[in-house]
């Protein structure tokens, strides 16, 4: 389905239907955590969520119409931001806690057992409190998450791709998701001026998500280099994309 033929309402409905299931860790280690056991839990969960994230992206109207090269570049750029914004949404009603999964709920202070992770937990908790303050609505969250994916790569995507129309399609998609977010905010009944403020406030939050993701990526790479945690499968591929880029 090409996004330009969908109304903003239809676009949002498709985003609701595209939502991935809530993932469980299943074999949560006993407390207290050690550095290795916490990192193992977090990476196992991330790997499971990543598989569902690919399925979610494919259900965003127009995403699979982009060339495969662009689909890969977008996902490898934004995967940790998407995981983090999902974590924030799950944690929004639970101040001071990070709801990684229903069976992996961490208090801020539990971050002390992994070197360097407390700073990232604090960034995530701060961004989550801001979303709580703004009373982020579910449909707004869905639009922001899709926007993170589609806006994740600032470099010309089609270099190396065989489909010159792909970047035009991506621009159309970004316009469609912007229209959808504007429509969701307008439907809330806020006065026009406050609608613009809300849009700006929500979009400004995205730079904090990007910042937390960059810090998280750096942290995960260092944990892997120090052999604190082995990284396998899809997570390894996604992490390697960032290692290669950094070099």
């Amino acid at each position: 389905i090409f996004p330009s033929v969908l109304s903003p309402e239809q676009f949002v409905t498709t985003l609701i239907e595209a939502e991935p299931p809530n993932v469980l860790l299943m074999n949560r280690p006993n407390k207290p955590f050690t550095e290795a056991s916490m990192m193992m839990s977090l990476t196992k969960l991330a790997d499971k969520e990543l598989v569902h994230m690919i399925g979610w992206a494919k259900k965003i109207p127009g995403f699979v119409e982009l060339c495969l090269y662009d689909q890969v570049r977008l996902l490898e750029s934004c995967w940790l931001e998407i995981l983090m914004v999902g974590l924030m949404w799950r944690s929004i009603e639970h101040p001071g806690k990070l709801i990684f999964a229903a069976d992996l709920i961490l208090d801020r202070d539990e971050g002390k057992c992994v070197e360097g992770i407390l700073e990232i937990f604090d960034m995530l908790l701060a961004a989550t409190s801001r979303l709580r303050e703004l009373k982020l609505q579910h449909k707004e969250y869905l639009c922001l998450k899709a926007m993170i994916l589609l806006n994740s790569n600032m470099f010309p995507l089609t270099m190396g791709s065989d489909d010159p129309d792909s970047s035009v399609k991506l621009r159309h998609l970004l316009n469609a998701i912007t229209d959808a977010l504007v429509w969701v905010i307008a439907k809330s009944g806020l006065p026009y001026r406050q609608q613009s403020n809300r849009l700006a406030n929500l979009l400004m939050l995205l730079s904090h998500v990007r910042h937390a993701s960059n810090k998280g990526m750096e942290h995960l790479l260092s944990m892997r280099c120090k052999n604190v945690v082995p990284v396998y499968d899809l997570l390894l591929e996604m992490l390697n994309a960032h290692t290669l880029r950094d070099h």
């Binding site: 690919i54 890969v72 490898e76």
Partner: peptide
């Protein structure tokens, strides 16, 4: 390495069925 080489699993997931099809 090329994008295809470094993203074998991602390519497979993008080109094949839904995540529920993949064990």
């Amino acid at each position: 390495s090329s994008l295809t080489e470094r993203h074998k699993i991602l390519h497979r997931l993008l080109q094949e069925g839904s995540p529920s099809d993949i064990s």
